[in-house]
Each structure stands twice: as C-alpha cells, then as structure tokens.
C-alpha cells in the first residue's frame, strides 16, 4: 500500500510557505542528527534506502506531526533497535 511519504498529487496540504529559509539547522540537535545519519551510513550500519524505508514506515500521524529532523531521528532509532545496536526504549527517559 502507498506510504505516507508518497504525497505527489495528494490534496489538502495547503499553499506553499515560500519564505526564503535556508538555515540548514534550526537547533543544535538537528545538526547532530544529520551527523549521526551520515556517520552510521558511512560505517555500513544501514544504507540510504533502509533509512528512507524507516522514515516512510512511520505511522502516518507521527510522520505528518514530525519535523524533518525528527523524522530522521525516529528512523535512526528504528534501524538501530532493529539491528540490535541499541535496546528498544534505551533512549527514553
């Protein structure tokens, strides 16, 4: 079935907010998540397609509510838990 990321032609997302915002990161943790993704990929812990797959597999409500780098972090967690690198819940408070 189609996944939530597959939005081409889907109605209802409203007008484009065309504000010229090209700040790469809006918080330090976003930069860290960016770095983590690249480091883990470089080490072969997961590949780019697995990473995309993990983002797309988010429950639709969570995907839509999450910011760009929140999605990245969710995908990193999913993959690291699936591969046994970390324990489920190990990052929670």
């Amino acid at each position: 079935m189609a996944r939530i990321n597959d939005v081409g032609g889907v109605e209802g997302f409203g007008p484009v907010d065309t504000a010229d915002d090209s700040e790469p990161f809006h918080a330090d943790w976003e930069a860290r998540v960016f770095g983590l993704m690249n480091a883990l990929r470089a080490q072969g812990i997961f590949n780019l397609n697995e990473f995309r797959d993990a983002i797309e597999s988010m429950p639709p409500g969570e995907y839509l509510a999450a910011s760009y780098y929140e999605r990245w972090f969710a995908a990193i967690r999913t993959l690291l838990e699936r591969k046994g690198v970390i324990e489920p819940g190990e990052l929670d408070d």
């Binding site: 032609g9 997302f13 484009v16 915002d21």
Partner: peptide, 29 residues
C-alpha cells in the same frame, strides 16, 4: 515527491518549503 532529494553541493542546504508536503504534493499536479 517521495522524500527530499536535492543537489546539495550546488544549491546549498535546501529551503524548508522544498521539503514540505505542500510543495511536494502539488508541484507535480
């Protein structure tokens, strides 16, 4: 439309709108 592929090196970090569902869903339609 599926994620946010972008020629980063040549264009710099992508603007938020490029990654938005609004842009991705509508520009092909």
């Amino acid at each position: 439309t599926l994620c946010s592929c972008y020629p980063l090196r040549l264009l710099g970090p992508s603007p938020s709108w490029y990654k938005s569902e609004a842009y991705r869903s509508r520009v092909v339609r």
